[in-house]
Design a protein around this nucleic acid. Structure first.
Length: 421
RNA sequence: GGAGAGGUGGCUGAGUGGUUUAAAGUACCCGCUUGGAAAGCGGGCGUAGGGAAACCUACCGGGGGUUCGAAUCCCCCCCUCUCCGCCA
């Protein structure tokens, strides 16, 4: 959510932000709701003030006295008026709140202009995608793949996109998770194991609701299976004021992630590219507003280091305004090269939300200078998502003999130099 | 799942329909005092919204209701604790 005062005082800034993100929002309607709300709250408060004054006066009068009875009669009318106006106010307030939630975060000044993913800027490329041999093939075509990643049985037992990982497939996945968590911990992130179901309030605070309604699995108890550890992690400090000295707070968490991926069926869903349940380690930061864009750079390099240690070619994209998410101020995507498919796969998305999530979630710190609570800035990024890293490892490291070479950094975790099908 | 007891400011805790502007204590901050400190004394000390300001309003787990008036009475929900049942 944006600062209502910012909207009031500088609507042109918000208008420019919406334009840069290429979104359609009726800002004038939001502004009209805002002034209506302010007018109505003034009326209600005036009436309530009268009630309070009468209450004090009546407390001093004898209960059955004529003055008392007259006052009761008088205040009955005021009471009725308060009820009516309050009902109106609540309606307006609800509409106003929904309208405010429909406003996107402002893109940072360094975000490039552009409408489509093609206009994202390639910020850097590491490793040589061309270095991989001609025998590379899409991971789902590698002989034996179906034994280690059993989609057919997963479909029988659960549904499409819920594969079984078997033998070395399961072992390699676990090795990656362990490797990620160890590296992230070394980089200063405290490991957390969060709940993997969240309530509606938490999903609203991070922006899954109402924006992405229908993308999450919902239980009979109105709990949502987490689409990413970002949701429970960010909500850890919801409605709290943390000490300024504790900032920046850096945490990492492994969770399975559940995504319905409604409406995304198509050619990109083969093999491990897009599944409904996958493992991911998420990195999260709560930082002082003055530090947040520096922290975004270090978050990105923390995620990049993992790919470097795995010896995987990758590139860094700086997202343009039109491809930036609703809540993000600035975002880098890390894409790993999958030699068999000859395409880039997104394995991490490093974002600075500035105060956008913090305002929804009311996560603040007490500023030393003013003594007043201020909103923190939140950032997050994957470190990393497992299935697509698996896909890249299988495709890039496939040897002519049909085995897959395990990168040196991962060997202590996997226990072998090669994976066999 | 069943029965009972609870939920009040950073913390402790009073308040069962009307000077409550949520007492008091404690913690914290400032001052007096002191060689310095402790103690003592005096003052300050929540969050949010509206307003140019004076100031006004809301908030006692959450939501609704009764009433001229609700922390207080009623209903629903959430959470904590105790006991019972079930269970990894």
């Amino acid at each position: 959510m944006l600062d209502p005062k910012l909207l009031r005082e500088s609507p042109q800034l918000v208008r420019a932000a919406i334009a840069k993100k290429h979104l359609e929002v009726d800002l004038d309607a939001v502004l009209a709701l805002d002034s209506a709300w302010r007018a109505q709250i003034g009326e209600v408060e005036q009436l309530r003030s009268r009630q309070k004054a009468a209450n004090t006066a009546m407390a001093a009068l004898p209960k059955g006295s004529p003055e008392f009875v007259a006052k009761v009669q008088e205040m009955k009318a005021v009471s009725a008026a308060v009820k009516e106006k309050e009902t109106q106010l609540k309606e307006t307030e609800e509409k106003w709140k929904q309208a405010m939630l429909s406003l996107p975060n402002l893109p940072h000044a360094t975000v490039p202009a552009g409408r489509t993913p093609e206009e994202n800027v390639v910020h850097a490329t590491h490793g040589d995608p061309q270095a991989v041999g001609a025998h590379a093939k899409p991971h789902w075509e590698i002989p034996g793949f179906d034994r280690l990643f059993d989609f057919a049985r997963g479909a029988k037992v659960t549904g499409a996109g819920f594969p079984f990982l078997v033998g070395d497939g399961a072992r390699l996945s676990r090795a990656l998770l362990q490797f990620f968590l160890d590296e992230d911990t070394k980089a200063g992130y405290t490991e957390v194991s969060p709940p993997i179901f969240v309530n509606a309030a938490s999903a609203t605070a991070t922006g899954q609701l109402p924006d992405k309604e229908g993308q999450m699995y919902e239980t009979i108890d109105k709990l949502y299976a987490v689409p990413t550890a970002e949701v429970p992690l960010t909500n850890f400090f919801r409605d709290e004021i943390v000490d300024e000295e504790t900032l920046p707070i850096r945490r990492c968490a492994y969770t399975p992630c559940f995504r319905r991926e409604a409406g995304s069926y198509g050619k990109d869903v083969r093999g491990l590219n897009r599944v409904h349940q996958f493992d991911k380690v998420e990195l999260l930061k709560w930082v002082h507003p003055s530090q947040s864009h520096d922290e975004l750079e270090s978050l990105r390099t923390d995620a990049e280091r993992l790919l470097q240690k795995l010896e995987l070619p990758y590139r860094v994209l700086l997202m343009c305004g039109g491809d930036l998410g609703f809540a993000q101020s600035k975002k880098y995507d890390l894409e790993v090269w999958a030699a068999g498919q000859k395409r880039w796969l997104e394995v991490s998305s490093c974002s600075n939300f500035e105060a956008f999530q913090a305002r929804r979630a009311q996560i603040r710190f007490r500023a030393k200078e003013s003594g007043k609570p201020e909103l923190v800035h939140t950032l997050n990024g994957s470190g990393l998502a497992v299935p697509r890293v698996l896909a890249a490892l299988l495709e890039n490291n496939l040897q002519p003999d049909g085995r897959v070479r395990i990168p040196a950094a991962l060997q202590p975790y996997f226990g072998k130099e090669h994976l066999s099908f």
